[in-house]
């Protein structure tokens, strides 16, 4: 009952969609992590307008479905005169969505660093930004790497929603092939397996890095337990 021919005939086309999914997610992460860092620092800022804006942005994007964010971007950008192709709208939406989660991960990572670290940096004459860059953020990296990877996996999955604004990524391609062939089973299994494989690959690479990292370098206990807190506090699924 499986029609194997479909796998052979349409796999190249599906792969093309997969390739676009990859490109979109990579761009969204490249935009989203710096934006997340800015939002995290903004939320911690003592300057109220900045922390208010950062907090609102983070909470708004974390507490709404991605699909409505996508549609908002799709209609709002041209409304204010910014006409972009669906791909770019998709990247922007995914980056904005991701950055809200990245920001909270980074913020929790910064908070996990003992207070004395910032104090010793300030006491020796570093400015706020110099302390962040030289002392706090480097220590944050190893803490936030696992949850950031998790969030990346989430972005890969959420990118499927860009099919609703006609971005020709993996899911959209699947829908198109299904429309041509009327063989949903074969098509969606192919699509699902690709997502799944990508997910598992990244997850297993990450697990290996984590293992090696914790073997090579002793991390102090406080930081270790903080990693677990961040992991278990439902930042992403």
């Amino acid at each position: 009952m499986l029609e194997y021919q479909i796998f052979f005939d349409y796999f190249p086309m599906i792969l093309l969609g997969f390739w676009l999914t990859l490109k979109i997610v990579v761009c969204a992460i490249a935009l989203g992590i710096p934006l997340g860092l800015i939002l995290a620092l903004g939320r911690r800022s003592n300057f109220i307008p900045i922390s208010f804006f950062a907090t609102s942005f983070i909470e708004l994007f974390r507490n709404t479905p991605f699909i409505i964010q996508v549609f908002l971007f799709y209609y709002v950008l041209p409304f204010y005169g910014l006409r972009l192709s669906a791909e770019y709208v998709g990247i922007l939406a995914l980056a904005a969505f991701g950055s809200a989660y990245f920001a909270e991960i980074i913020r929790a990572g910064i908070d996990a660093i003992p207070k004395g670290q910032l104090e010793s940096a300030r006491a020796i004459g570093m400015t706020d930004w110099q302390s962040m860059k030289n002392i706090i953020l480097p220590q944050t990296v190893s803490i936030v790497l696992p949850p950031l990877t998790n969030q990346t996996l989430t972005l890969i999955k959420e990118s499927a929603i860009l099919s609703t604004i006609t971005v020709h990524e993996l899911t959209m391609t699947g829908l198109m092939v299904q429309g041509e062939t009327f063989r949903p089973f074969e098509v969606f299994i192919m699509v699902a397996l690709l997502y799944w494989a990508l997910n598992e690959t990244i997850a297993s690479i990450m697990r290996r890095i984590e293992k090696r990292y914790s073997r090579n370098r002793k991390q102090n206990k406080i930081v270790r337990s903080k990693i677990d807190i961040i992991k278990s506090s439902g930042f992403s699924r």
Partner: peptide, 8 residues
């Protein structure tokens, strides 16, 4: 966990 809800 490894596939998008939309695909599911």
């Amino acid at each position: 966990r490894g596939t998008p809800l939309l695909v599911q």
